[in-house]
Amino acid sequence: MSDDDLSLAEQEQELPAEVEEKKRKGQLRTGYTTGTTATAATKAALLALLGKEVREVQVSLPKGKTATLKVAWTQSENGRATSAAVKDGGDDPDVTHGAEICSTVSFNDKAGAVNIDGGQGVGRVTKPGLGLEVGRAAINPTPMAMLKQAVEQVAGEQIKARGVDVVISVPKGEELAKKTDNPRLGIMGGISILGTTGIVLPYSTASFAAAIRQSLDVAIAAGADSAILTTGGRSEDFAKAMFDLPEHCFVQMGDFAGYSVRQAAAKKMRRVVMAGFIGKLTKMAMGVKQTHVRGSHVDMEFMAGLAESCGANQKVLAEIRQANTARHVGEIITKNNIKGFYDLLCRKVHEQMSEYSGGRLDIEVIMFDFDGRVLARYTQARH
């Protein structure tokens, strides 16, 4: 990943204990991308079209590696063959794990032409900014190259005399896509065929980072110079009630606050609004740029220090120091009517994120309570 991507520290995730133990022992199983799976299905279908049905195929991955995948089934009729492979994401909790990815292959009369398209369950690009042509199937460049390479490996000299048509389909793709960012990104009707290495690393943050970058790119391509960065779906819903902006302006940054503002600044956006609840915003105020980093627990002493700056007495400070969560601290603040606490917290977030973005963005910070009421807003124009 580039310098604008996640640092090693930012890639550390706080995982369930049993997953953490497996990761520590090196027991987490890697998997294969949708691109690799589609390539396996394509290779098997083309072999079947040439009269050789197989139960497994070897796929060439980027950087010279190979992988052997099983073929789920193959059917041939009317001058075309269809094979399916099942997406195996290893131990990564991806929504496409277990999905059947099919490839239908036939010959055409255009010598040398290899046409690759998406069918049922593969999304179509409807917005610019994704590095893919609007109207085309959402098959990313690396999988596209892998598919073409597979056709050439199998057909060889034969494609000089006649071309090959390949249609990738995912029977449950349209339903699966609803659980992804595709609708937000303007990829409609199905999932994307993805992968840069061909391999899925369990619990990798790279895919989330890519989704943030893509979301910002789509917003910019649509003419937006501002983005509303939220920590999740609930805060996004509350933000949408405040800002009458197109869907593409709303980007879920999740735990990647620092990364998101850095990307927005690098892409020369003018302004971002960062909206969330007390827990994530407190971590941002503490200077934690990736709020799910192991050990990045809310520091009650830090919160007590803010409360003391707002005039809280020693009894309240002691109660804060013994609090269970940031939300619990919020209840203590509200109960004791500590004025200015939430404003100060938002100002601290602003300071941290402004520094991290190199002062290249206008930043507004909004804190919601859990019913969607605005507890505090802070913004300050760049000098």
Rank of each mutant, 00 (worst) to 15 (best):
D3S: 03
D3Q: 10
A9M: 10
Q11T: 14
Q13N: 12
Q13R: 14
E14K: 05
A17C: 04
V19N: 06
Y32P: 11
T37C: 12
T37G: 07
A41F: 08
A44H: 06
A45T: 04
R55Q: 14
V59Y: 09
L61W: 10
K63D: 14
K65T: 02
A72N: 11
E77R: 09
E77H: 07
R80F: 03
D91T: 04
T96F: 08
S103H: 05
K110T: 15
A113C: 02
V125L: 06
G129H: 13
I139A: 07
P141C: 08
T142H: 00
T142V: 15
P143F: 08
M146P: 11
K148I: 01
K148M: 05
E152K: 15
V154K: 12
A155F: 08
K160V: 00
K160Q: 13
R162F: 15
G163N: 10
V164C: 03
D165M: 06
S169P: 02
P171S: 03
L176N: 12
A177R: 08
K179C: 02
N182Q: 10
R184F: 05
L185G: 00
S192G: 10
S192T: 07
I193F: 04
T197H: 07
G198S: 08
G198N: 05
V200W: 00
V200S: 07
I212M: 08
V218M: 12
V218F: 09
I220F: 05
F238I: 10
L245P: 05
L245H: 08
C249K: 03
C249M: 00
F250E: 03
M253K: 14
A266P: 00
K268A: 12
M269I: 06
K289C: 05
A304R: 10
L306C: 08
C310R: 10
G311E: 03
I320R: 03
E331N: 13
I333Y: 02
K339F: 01
L345F: 06
H350P: 08
Q352K: 14
Q352L: 01
D362R: 07
D371L: 04
R377I: 09
